[in-house]
Structure formats: C-alpha cells, structure tokens
Nucleic acid binder design. Structure first.
Lengths: 235, 235
DNA sequence: TCTTCAATAATCGTATACAATACGACATCT
DNA sequence: AGATGTCGTATTGTATACGATTATTGAAGA
C-alpha cells in the first residue's frame, strides 16, 4: 500500500500517479482530464485531484483552461524547442558542477548504470528509455543542488512528453557511448569538455529522435497540435 | 480593482499578493501564514489561499509542514548557495542566448532602464533594488523562452528572500556600470564575454551584499536559521 | 517554583455542497 | 437542409463543513 493514511501523502500519490501516466503515455497528449472521473478512479475527492493537476500545470505537463478543465499538455514546436534549450543549458551546468567532484562511489554507480543501459539496449524499448532518462537525473542528484535537480527533472519530463508527440517511434534516445564519454570527462575533471559533451549529447538526442524529421502524412496531423492547443477536441 | 470576478483570477490575485508581500518583506522570513486569517484578510476562502500557498511552496518562498501549516521560507545558507548558483547558471544562458540577437529597440529599452537605475541609485532604497531585479527579468523576457523566464523569475524571487535574511542592510545590489558593460557585450554579439560578465556580475552581488560578510552580532542571530528550519518559533 | 497533564482552542487535511459556466441535443425558423 | 435559439447535463470554481492533529492554557502535583 503506497496509499498511506498520512496527511499530504495521498495528494502526492495522485500527483505522482498522473505524472507517471502522462510520461508513460497512458494518458496521451491532448487527452482531457476530468477531475471527477480521476478522483473516482483513484479513490480521492476532487480537491486532491485539483491540487495535483495544478502542480502538473505549473510543470507544463498539463494544460489548464479556465472553466473547461485540464488536459494533458500538447506543447507546440516552439515550446518544445524552448524546453530542450533550457534542458541543455541546465545539464551543462550539471556537467560543469560535477567535473572533478565525482567521488569514486558515484563514478562507479554511474558506470553500473551505463552497463544496465547497455544490457537493455537491444531489447526492451520503454525500459531503455527509462534508463536513459534516469542517467541524467542521477547526474543532477549528484550535484547535491536541490533546485538544479528539480529543474532538470521538470525539463526532463517535459522532454518525454515532447518526444511522445514529435519523436520518431522507437529511437533509443541516448547513445550509451556518449554517456560513457561523459563519465570519463567528469572523472578527468575536465569541466569544459564535460559541458561540451553534454551539450552535444542532448543536441544529438534532438536531431536523432526529434523535431522536423517526421514527415507528417496529412492535414490532420499538421492541424492536430493547433486544434488541441486551442482547446478544440478532434475525435 | 484587480479583484475581478473572473474565474481563476482571484486565486492568482491571492498568489501574487502573498508573493509580493514576501518579497517586499511585509511578511518576514519564518513568519507563520495561517490559511484562515489570510483568507479573511483577502476576502477569499481557505481553498484559494491553500492553492496559492501550495504554489509558493513549490517555488521555495513558503515552507509547508504537514499538519502545522505554512510559513515564509527561511532558507539555510546551503540552500541559498544552491539558489545563487542556479541563478548564475540560468542568467549565463540568458546572456549567451541574447548575444547578437538583441534588436535595436530592445537595446534601447535596456539602456533606458539602466538610466532609470542610475537616477534611483542615490535616493530611494527599495526602488533601486526593484529596478535592479527588473533588469534581469527584462533580459530573460527578451530571450522569448518562456521556461527560461519562469526559472529566472523563480530564482530571482528566492534570491530576494535570501538577501532579506543574509544580506547586509542597504547594499545596492547591482552595480549600474556592470549592467552597462553587459549590454555592450550583448550588442557586440560576444556571447562568451556576455556570459562571463553576467557570471561575475551575479557573483559580485553575492560577495558584495551577502553570504558570510555579515558578522552576526549575537547568538540569537546565529541560531535563528536553525531554530526556524526546525519549525521552532522564536519570538 | 517548576514540571506534568488534561481540557480547550486553533489550525490543518479532505470531502462535500452549491453556484456559475460551457457543451450538446433537440426544437424551431427561414 | 441549414442556421439559430433554448433547455438539460456535465464539469468547473469556490465556499463551507467536519474530523483529525497540533498548539495552548491552566491547574494539580512534586
């Protein structure tokens, strides 16, 4: 039971449940999120659902329109670019911060993680994606800077959502070799190189998996983002 | 009347009112924030106050302890350092992003702003501080990156709170000349130099106005942060 | 006088209630 | 048929209600 009757924890459970559901695409971009049905499903009142939706809206995973409720966010391409730019910047900071400061234990943990990524590379799709993401979160954690961690987490989740919309189907997001190189640079204490590697790593994630490469098939695909960002509701 | 009976706007009004009150130190760090009295004062129910407090808690301006309510945040020195570090990083990104991209109109606006800062420098204390802060917000706005703007705003407000606690009384936070140099570098399109200037500018804000230079007078000052961060309630 | 404890008051966490708004279906008119 | 107006339903925005938890006060005992 993660439920726990402790105060405030149920609210957080709702938040996390919705968050995961969105990132894993159980709730697809643009999908409506009525407070009633969610509350009923999760066994809480609208109050807590509302709280969670509000928080998700701040983080950009949910869109909240006055008097017409919440829906899973459907970022435009410009917003997507913004998010990726900021994320690259943030993770560059992470890299600079970490260069030379990595303890032996931390380096070992990262390498173990990369080995896992390698193992999962060929087979399980979603598992591979999850591991790639976690690598970056782990790095942010290791800075010991809570605010930096929060921002990286937020940007990362939004990136997941963006890739769900604009990314090609099964691009394995991160190249394992690039993670390896990065660890090496961090270990060597070469901050500039680490930042540079991180920057290009994330840049290549974009070009490899994302933005523009996807040739939209027909007008419906092209219009979908606009319709949804205006609150319209295509079938 | 900023009140406006439009839905959702009252909630935002509450949020903004509390935010300003905290930043302007009408509500001092550590001060309790009971939902009831705030709601009564602002003419709304606890629901909306709660919403606002939740949001402020996420942004780090308010601390929220389970079953014992909200209080104005009292960041520790480590948290303060984290926030300043992230802010410096973010604003470096702003500088890099803006270098060479500044339109003539934007440059003019910035220069006009700096002239205002200069005017206000000698006289009004709080006014000078406000203008210094706004300069940085303006820069972030000019990137056109909404997420970057949000993060800079958030970090800035937290910095205000931090300076309220640990800063020396009337340090004029930003040197006008440094702002001028920055604009020049942006205009020249020298991204590296702009980033460097920004970095040192913010670094000097810290050393000039802040952290450690303040010789605490007695034990009470030294203990205050610890007491408050533990939820204790000194008179 | 200082501690301990119980009763009371204050405040929070969550659910529910009610009014306001938006969406959809049907009827009406041209 | 197509457009337009009206009613009913669904869903939101906000307030209120109620049980639970924490702070406070005051009295009794050491």
């Amino acid at each position: 039971m993660t439920d726990s009757r402790q105060p405030g924890l149920r609210a957080q459970s709702v938040y996390r449940a919705l968050r995961r559901a969105i990132i894993e695409q159980a709730l697809k971009p643009g999908m409506k999120l009525p407070e009633d049905s969610i509350g009923e499903q999760l066994g809480v009142s609208r109050t807590l659902v509302r709280e969670a939706l509000g928080r998700l809206a701040i983080e950009g995973l949910v869109e909240l329109k006055p008097n017409r409720g919440a829906s899973v966010a459907y970022p435009t391409l410009e917003e997507a670019r913004d998010v990726f730019d900021v994320r690259r910047g943030l993770e560059r900071l992470v890299a600079e911060n970490l260069a030379g400061r990595l303890t032996a234990a931390q380096a070992a943990e990262l390498e173990a993680h990369v080995r896992q990524e390698e193992k999962a590379h060929g087979q399980d799709g979603p598992e591979s994606i999850r591991l790639s993401g976690e690598f970056h979160i782990k790095l942010a954690e290791m800075t010991g800077n809570a605010l930096l961690l929060r921002y990286v987490q937020e940007a990362s989740s939004r990136c997941s959502l963006i890739l769900a919309i604009y990314g090609r189907p099964h691009s394995s997001e991160c190249a394992v070799s690039e993670h390896r190189q990065l660890i090496e640079a961090l270990r060597a204490g070469d901050g500039a190189r680490a930042a540079h590697l991180m920057d290009h790593h994330l840049q290549s994630v974009v070009t490899r998996a994302l933005l523009t490469p996807r040739a939209e098939r027909d007008i419906r695909d092209l219009l979908a983002p606009y319709a949804l960002s205006e609150g319209l509701n295509p079938p």
